[in-house]
Design a protein around this nucleic acid. Structure first.
Lengths: 338, 338
DNA sequence: TTTATAAATGAAATGCATTTCAAAAAAATA
DNA sequence: TATTTTTTTGAAATGCATTTCATTTATAAA
């Protein structure tokens, strides 16, 4: 089996003493072809290392069997985000696509403008798009949906959304965290996370809702920070603890496990113990949360299913059906940090 | 700008009162076309939302401007590897490809058989392949190289290798770690890492070489384990400490930062302090190593450059030139865990 | 003004597989 | 055996952009 450059379907047809359409059918297991013919053709193809030219195929079929996945690496790298959550999500998507024999075109941030995005589809480079994380692109989604581009988003799910999204029930997640911390008898809350991100903001709202139900007085402050990297969290936390010793919180809800870990470090440096002085709850249940010291109480969801769902819905969309958004169940995983 | 299905180059040509070739040239900024014509054509294309059909283009050019990146998600997920190293590498590759206007086709493990791999190229689905991590595929690489498939590998670099690889100088990294631990006056060493992986084995050899140079007697043992996830490391470590209190090491060199972190946890649980009782050195300098408690001494390398290098070499290969392998500089980053 | 050169454009061929539709071959029925 | 039905097969059209090569047009030189 050697790679040559010019074995075409025509060549195989000639060698098998049949026509091109027959070869085409044989290779695709069409029932319109005799088993003998099929075998003959396949053996010949194998022998000569012939593989169908995907580009010709795609051109003819006006279908690419390719899905574009948009992942904002850049902001990840710049923020030095080490949150493996998105990576696991990507893995789930990758696997689900593989099962459906769809190729995965990974798109860098350069492609993030709406023009290039719809161009991906218009140029038949991909049949649909999966956005992993909505970042600050929400307005674009509305436009994109209006253009009829088939896509799904991992992000926040809302009423009357003009596009299909799959996401964690962020509000409920925040609510669970709040409830849990109240159960622990805490009252001075700190929320850690960049609320400019919609998903994060919803988690915060869930927390607020839980606090509102409390019959004891509670206090909530925010750790203002830019992005949500481990480093920036750590710095912000240190600065806060330093400047404001009096109002150090006794409960922290961090919008990501990574941020929670950073927080715990900062608290430790300041001589505060977790969970002794402060209870901390994270988000995402990343692999590693379990093994952190102390093991992290966190909000978890089924990432792997998320990937499969995103793919399933996108395929429906491509087939012309309008898939509904789904909010993934979210659960509290109690460990030792709270 | 609305997406329609059937605006073709011919349509634009008709509207501009020119021929297809002219449109083609105009859109690709060929100097063979008058600025006026170009503008006319481009405006028309813009107006009608016309985008070149990538598949037709690729077919005609027998070139896909696409690079396949093979990443063994599966083993990652199964091992629950949370090591963000490979993710950063992917980000680097993605960016470098973006700069060269190459698309990135992300391949799941299903594509890992050598047949499918060379088929990716033969089918013109991609012009070349980048392997991120060699896993247990080394023998395949030799075959693949023999087939003339253009590819590069992130992995171990060796003499007389029949293919192009870019990798950390694993031996030197191990050597640096060993030297450093010796400088700290340590003598009972533990190596943590699955030596079945070649890169890992080289790190170990570097360590051994450093120990061999010591004038004091040293002792080296291995933490035997399967894969290199945080969880399996942790379990193995706990089991070891439990069973063999007498020979608990005073120096640990872990083949990844994640493993180092797991080890530190396990040691902590056993009442041993780092760096008080045991010095620990990791590998990769992942984002987060810096913020771990205690901050991790580790072996670092320029991941971002690695991505760029891989791409650069692959492009050379595709152009028919034979790129040389490169070993990336490796440096010791001393922090508080040692 | 004529001729030589350079610049811009277009007709037709090309890349390769799939689809349509008609024809041939085989099998079933009368 | 003749006729209808079913199963296989193939010729030609199709999907769309690029390339080659010839032709026209504009510019420079004679």
């Amino acid at each position: 089996m050697k790679i040559r450059r010019s074995v075409t379907m025509e060549d195989i047809a000639r060698m098998a003493h049949v026509s091109k359409p027959t070869v085409s059918r044989a290779l695709r297991n069409s029932p319109l072809v005799t088993p003998e013919t099929r075998k003959l053709v396949m053996d010949l193809a194998q022998k000569h290392g012939y593989v169908v030219n995907r580009n010709a195929q795609k051109l003819r079929q006006s279908r690419s069997d390719t899905i574009a996945v948009v992942l904002d690496f850049k902001s990840h790298r710049e923020n030095r985000i080490s949150d493996p959550f998105i990576f696991n999500l990507l893995a789930g998507v990758s696997e689900a696509l593989g099962q459906r024999e769809q190729d995965l075109l990974l798109c860098a941030p350069g492609h993030a403008e709406i023009e290039s995005l719809s161009a991906i589809i218009a140029s038949r480079g991909a049949d649909g798009i999966i956005f992993l994380g909505e970042g600050e692109r929400r307005p674009d989604f509305v436009d994109l949906a209006a253009l009829g581009v088939p896509f799904v988003v991992w992000g926040s799910v809302e009423q009357d959304q003009s596009y299909c999204a799959v996401g964690s029930d962020n509000f409920h997640g925040g609510f669970l965290a709040g409830q849990h911390l109240l159960d622990r008898g805490r009252s001075r809350f700190l929320f850690v996370g960049d609320s400019r991100f919609h998903e994060i903001s919803q988690r915060r709202q869930g927390l607020v809702a839980a606090l509102a139900k409390s019959d004891k007085p509670t206090h909530l402050s925010d750790l203002i920070m830019d992005g949500f990297s481990y480093a920036s969290t750590l710095e912000a936390a240190r600065a806060m603890i330093e400047s404001d010793k009096a109002t150090v919180p006794d409960a922290v809800f961090a919008a990501s496990d990574t941020a929670a870990m950073a927080l715990i470090s900062a608290l430790g440096d300041a001589g505060l113990s977790v969970p002794g002085d402060v209870s901390v709850v994270g988000y995402n249940n990343i692999p590693g949360a379990e093994y952190f010291s102390p093991p992290l109480t966190t909000i978890g969801q089924d990432v792997h299913m998320a990937g499969a769902l995103l793919v399933e819905k996108l395929m429906l969309h491509i087939e012309g059906r309008a898939p509904a958004s789904t909010m993934l169940d979210t659960r509290l995983i109690v460990r030792e940090s709270s």
